[in-house]
C-alpha cells in the first residue's frame, strides 16, 4: 500500500522550474531516502509534500489525501523534523512534549502516556525537567524525532536530521528510525551522508529538478556499476 504517490509533481517560480514533473511512490513502513545535490529541488519537493509550499502542477496524495485540496487533513497525519533543530531550547523536555501534544490536539491522558513512552524511548527519564538546550546534540535530535511522532503519524518527514553529529550517534538515530518503520510508520528522509543512504530501503536521487534514479541501494549500485552509494551519487550528479 502506498502512503505517498506523486504523479508529475511540479513547482515553478516564474520562469524557473524547481521541481520538474517528478513521479514516485512510497510504501507504508518504508524508509525512503530522498537525495540530491544542493539546488536540485529536493527541499522544494519536501516543502510541497509537507504543505509549506503549494504545488504548481501534478496530482499527489499523501497519507491518502490530495495534496492540493486536502492539505489540512494531511497535516494531522504527518510529522516533520527540520534540519534546523526544532524544539524550544528554553523549555524543558517535558514542556516540549506537552506543547506539541497540545498542538496536535491530543487529550491530557494521551499526552501523559506519550510523554512516558518518549522519555523511555529516548532514555531521558532523569532529564525530563532539564532545558532542552542543555542536552547534547545527538540526544536533542533523537528527542526531536520522537516528538515529531507524538501524534502517531503515518509518515514522518526528516529533513537532514543528523547534521553535525558523529557516526556512532547517527547509528543510534537510525536504530530509532528502523524501530519506527518496523511499527508501520513510513520514514521519508533527506540526507547528505552517503553511509546513511545505504541504510534506506529505497532511494531516489534528484538532479536538476528531475528524479534521475530510483531503486534499492543494491539495484542502484548494480545499475551504475558502483561499489558504494557515494559513487552512484557522484556519477549521477556529474
Amino acid at each position: 500500500m502506498n502512503v505517498i504517490t506523486a504523479t508529475n509533481l511540479t513547482k515553478t517560480f516564474g520562469n524557473f522550474t524547481a521541481v520538474d514533473a517528478i513521479s514516485f511512490a512510497v510504501k507504508r513502513g518504508e524508509v525512503f531516502g530522498f537525495l540530491g545535490a544542493n539546488g536540485a529541488g529536493k527541499t522544494t519537493a519536501i516543502k510541497m509534500l509537507i504543505g509549506l509550499s503549494k504545488p504548481s502542477g501534478g496530482s499527489t496524495t499523501v497519507a491518502g489525501f490530495d495534496l492540493t485540496t486536502q492539505s489540512e487533513k494531511i497535516k494531522e497525519r504527518i510529522g516533520y523534523m527540520s534540519q534546523k533543530f526544532s524544539l524550544y531550547e528554553d523549555l524543558s523536555v517535558r514542556q516540549n512534549i506537552n506543547f506539541y501534544g497540545g498542538v496536535y490536539g491530543l487529550s491530557r491522558k494521551t499526552i501523559r502516556s506519550q510523554t512516558a513512552r518518549i522519555l523511555d524511548e529516548v532514555e531521558l527519564q532523569a532529564n525530563a525537567n532539564d532545558k532542552v538546550g542543555s542536552l547534547p546534540l545527538g540526544w536533542k535530535q533523537r528527542l526531536s524525532f520522537a516528538v515529531a511522532s507524538v501524534h502517531d503519524p503515518d509518515i514522518v518527514f526528516l529533513d537532514e536530521p543528523t547534521g553535525g553529529v558523529d557516526p556512532a550517534t547517527r547509528r543510534q538515530f537510525w536504530e530509532m528510525i528502523y524501530a519506527a518503520a518496523a511499527g508501520g510508520r513510513t520514514i521519508f528522509v533527506t540526507t547528505h551522508y552517503m553511509d546513511e543512504a545505504e541504510y534506506c530501503d529505497r532511494i531516489s536521487i534528484m538532479v536538476a529538478g528531475k528524479i534521475a534514479a530510483l531503486g534499492t541501494p543494491g539495484e542502484l549500485k548494480q545499475q551504475y556499476q558502483a561499489n558504494s552509494m557515494g559513487e552512484v551519487f557522484l556519477r549521477l550528479v556529474r
Partner: peptide, 13 residues
C-alpha cells in the same frame, strides 16, 4: 530563526 515556525506551519494549527 530557530526553525520552529516551520514545525508550527506543518502542524494542524
Amino acid at each position: 530563526e530557530m526553525g520552529t515556525m516551520d514545525l508550527l506551519l506543518v502542524s494542524p494549527l
